[in-house]
């Protein structure tokens, strides 16, 4: 069986639709993972052991296990406790939690790396704790962590393909649907790979632009 890329004609709509879902899935997961990751970082830096230890445990557990396994846990496990989520929601939760754990580690390191004198200086100028954090420490921390967080976002886009296994109609599953119609795996997976590659390039450029902007806080 040779290759015949003309088979792709007629399925552009399916693939584009899938790509749109992949982008939506990725953007939603990136936003949520940054929020959860920041909270986890703050909890982990907290002086209270009762919040620090459980969060540290969850970070350790999620860092040591595969995303695919976590995806199965969240999709099938939340049903067991009575939360019947659709596949898209379960996918977003799994992706955000998985990456939040890594983001938390990065953000924590970024906050710790900001010189202590910066905080003291801000406070002595009359800023409150919250103001000092928001106006002095966090912007500087953001500069420290922008490249690492950017890498996580780029990884998230690629890992979002795993969500196809629980039935989210994103790019990978869309390609699979087209394949079950046509029995042409090579052409469609290659087409999906090309689309992922382009999305990846776009995201890379966006991340670089953010890095450049955050550099002014140095």
């Amino acid at each position: 069986m040779g290759l015949d890329f003309s088979i792709l004609a007629g399925y552009e709509g399916v693939l584009v639709q899938g790509a749109i879902w992949t982008v939506g899935l990725t953007v939603a997961s990136i936003v949520l993972s940054l929020v959860i990751g920041t909270l986890m970082a703050v909890f982990r830096l907290s002086g209270m052991r009762i919040v620090r230890w459980p969060v540290s445990f969850v970070i350790w557990l999620f860092m040591g296990t595969p995303l695919l396994l976590q995806l199965y846990l969240i999709y099938f496990g939340l049903v067991q406790i009575g939360l019947d989520l659709n596949a898209f929601t379960a996918g977003v939760i799994a992706l955000s939690l998985h990456f939040a754990v890594y983001d938390a580690d990065i953000i924590r390191a970024g906050i710790v790396a900001v010189d202590k004198g910066q905080y003291e200086a801000a406070r002595s100028l009359g800023l409150s704790h919250a103001q000092a954090m928001r106006k002095s420490i966090v912007p500087q921390a953001l500069y420290n962590v922008a490249p690492a967080l950017g890498n996580m976002m780029i990884a998230l886009l690629k890992e979002s393909s795993l969500v196809s296994v629980i039935g989210v109609m994103e790019l990978t599953l869309s390609a699979q649907r087209a394949i079950s119609d046509t029995f042409r795996p090579f052409e469609f997976y290659l087409a999906a790979a090309v689309i992922y590659y382009v999305l990846n390039l776009v995201l890379e450029q966006a991340v670089k632009a953010v890095e450049r902007r955050s550099a002014k806080y140095r």
Partner: peptide
């Protein structure tokens, strides 16, 4: 590095 391992 630019495409998902699953697709590969």
């Amino acid at each position: 590095r630019g495409t998902p391992a699953l697709i590969q």
